[in-house]
Amino acid sequence: METTRVAICSHKGGVGKTTLALNLGLALAQLGHRTTVMELDSQESLAASLLRPGRTMPGLHEVVTGSVTLGEALVATKVPGLSLLPAGHVDPLEAVGFQSLLAQPEGLGPVLEALKGERFVLMDCPSGVGGATLGALGVATHTLIPIQAEPLSLRSVQLVLETMAGVRDRRNPDLELLGLVLMMFDRDADASMEVVRAAWRDFDPEVLFETVVPRSPVYLDASLHGVPVAFMAPGMHPEGRRFQMLAEEILRRLAREEVGHAGPAQSLL
């Protein structure tokens, strides 16, 4: 089976891209699908959430600049089938150059070619539509867009969709929208509820995933402990199960794509 390469991107920052990438990657691996989560953000959010403070490791930056091999940079986890490729250490003054490098086909292309044994590669893009995001969209098969359940995030959705449409028209005609995921939903906040209601009203069920990720202190705690949220309770924290439900939705959606039917999304309940 071909690798599904998913660019997780958003124009707005702080919407939960890294949370989505890491926890979805874990869920897919737990469901038996070999997955690599690749960090394209030179802020090293993924590595920062998993490593002890002050510790760095080589990653994508070192791979694309040729100082280490992919095998040396790829981090195997204790979860069978889940690997991580952190961004590596990027000097802040070189961040723009790193992004430019990723924007070129020869930047991410060879890395993804080497990962073609994986069922999924999730690319955690930096916010905005800089070179790294454009590079990821250029080599991805699908785009997954998190929407923070707050008003400003809604405004940014159109921008990232327009970017995706532009990349599809000019560079990657096979790029598909996998869907939109509502993140950080706070049902006690009127504004958050309004955003969710607007999204439910206007986006088709085949576009907007049923699974909604709430705003919950457990995500902050997970980040503090440097683990995916599923690891925050014995067995599995219920929020981890939430990402498994999202993973199941994604798998069903991809299965429908394969048989050429874009039917209505399956029910969450």
């Binding site: 327009e162 790029l175 598909e176 929208l177």
Partner: peptide
């Protein structure tokens, strides 16, 4: 945005 998603999806 919704129209764009339909086109892209």
């Amino acid at each position: 945005a919704a129209e764009l998603t339909r086109r892209l999806r």
